[in-house]
Design a protein around this nucleic acid. Structure first.
Lengths: 218, 218
DNA sequence: GACAAATGCGAGTGGTCGCTCGCATTCTTG
DNA sequence: CAAGAATGCGAGCGACCACTCGCATTTGTC
């Protein structure tokens, strides 16, 4: 019971693993291979042997660096979330309340869609239906962070709304974005751009009537 | 190809299976059990042994009536689509072009959400990421039908739009509905109703500015 | 009741997959 | 260079799963 199986013990008993440069390279190699396999087949259908093969490595070597299949997805997910926070800041796309709604929505959508097109695994791991337990935690955490951020933005724009209203609206916005992302990723070139614009329009038209008098409009 | 797998063959060569009433009952029983298991675990993770157990039947009995696991999902899906068409008509929620937009959207959303709350498997089988090949066909067929219906509705409301614009708008609408459905199913009671209203609002506010002069508004 | 067909059972089969183990090779460190 | 640690290999183990087979029981028909 209560076995969280973390490698953080006050006693330095659990860290005889001195990693060599070769090992770090292998890990990166394996994670890239895993990303490709997860993208094409999804998490559950991806076999560890397939990941090892994709990385040009034997199954045994894979298990030299990862204790099990789930750990690969977790490490990949953690690195993605880390990259995301590093790229967009800890607060995830902070917005000045004075910016016009169109601009705020536009830049937020652009940021997240860019991130997703550059890291297709992110979508596969986060929105896949067959993600492992610990992965779901990472997802839920990110989800909660985003909802919180959106709530913060909306609260200042929806004067007469209850907290429940704000939360509900935030969930709708995130859901619309999520669906839009799916459609955007399914198209390319000009059509993709057109879909991006549609998603922005949906959100702008949805949110505009909710706001009271806009501060600093002129 | 062109194997519709119906039990209607001119040559009586393929139908030595004279089904007894008991058999039909078992089939219904198995499909109900499969629906429950698919709902809780999804298609891929659902084991045929678990379905048989849920139905209070041995694995062998299951395979007396279904050639393989996929056939269970296909039969279930076909029956759901059949029910849907029977409930809402072949055209799937036809709308009089003279009805106001709010009313048209409202009734369509209500219909589909009701169907989904009454048949939770539908969502699990259609939006699950791990659906089998033939199941995807059923889904794509239904998807195309719905897109076509929405396009028909939008075409008369978007005077100056190209066909590509109409198609894109239709996909956005269906996507918004899909996301909304997810959120609606995740809540209950008054909160669920509130989400239903939000989804309707999103669509109404998205579509209203697209229309030119409304015909028959007087 | 007699016979065949339909139904029912559950241990068993073949295949896949996550993961391990023993051993070889390469690197670091003194 | 020597010793030990880190890395690398791939056959193979155990578990699980879709599916089968031989046989028992029930049902429809004459």
């Amino acid at each position: 019971m209560s076995d969280t199986s973390e490698q953080e013990q006050p006693q330095a008993k659990e860290q005889p693993r001195r990693r060599q440069a070769r090992g770090e390279r292998r890990i990166a190699q394996l994670l890239e291979a895993a990303a490709r396999v997860f993208c094409t087949t999804g998490y559950t259908a991806a076999s560890t042997n397939a990941i090892a093969r994709e990385a040009g490595v034997s199954p045994g070597t894979l298990y030299q660096f990862f204790p099990n299949k789930e750990a690969i997805a977790i490490e990949l997910g953690d690195r993605l979330v880390h990259d995301m926070r590093e790229t967009y800041g800890e607060a995830l796309a902070p917005v000045d309340p004075a910016t016009p709604l169109e601009e705020a929505i536009g830049s937020a959508i652009d940021r997240f869609i860019t991130f997703n097109t550059e890291h297709p695994v992110f979508f596969a791991l986060m929105h896949g239906p067959d993600i492992p337990g610990r992965m779901a935690e990472t997802h839920d955490q990110l989800h909660a962070t985003l909802i919180g951020r959106i709530e913060g933005l909306l609260a200042s724009l929806m004067p007469g709304a209850t907290p429940a209203d704000v939360t509900r609206t935030a969930h709708i916005c995130l859901g619309v974005y999520k669906t839009g992302l799916e459609l955007v990723l399914a198209h390319e070139g000009a059509e993709r751009d057109a879909y991006v614009q549609e998603v922005k329009d949906v959100l702008i038209r949805y949110l505009t009537p909710l706001m009271g008098d806009r501060p600093g409009r002129d």
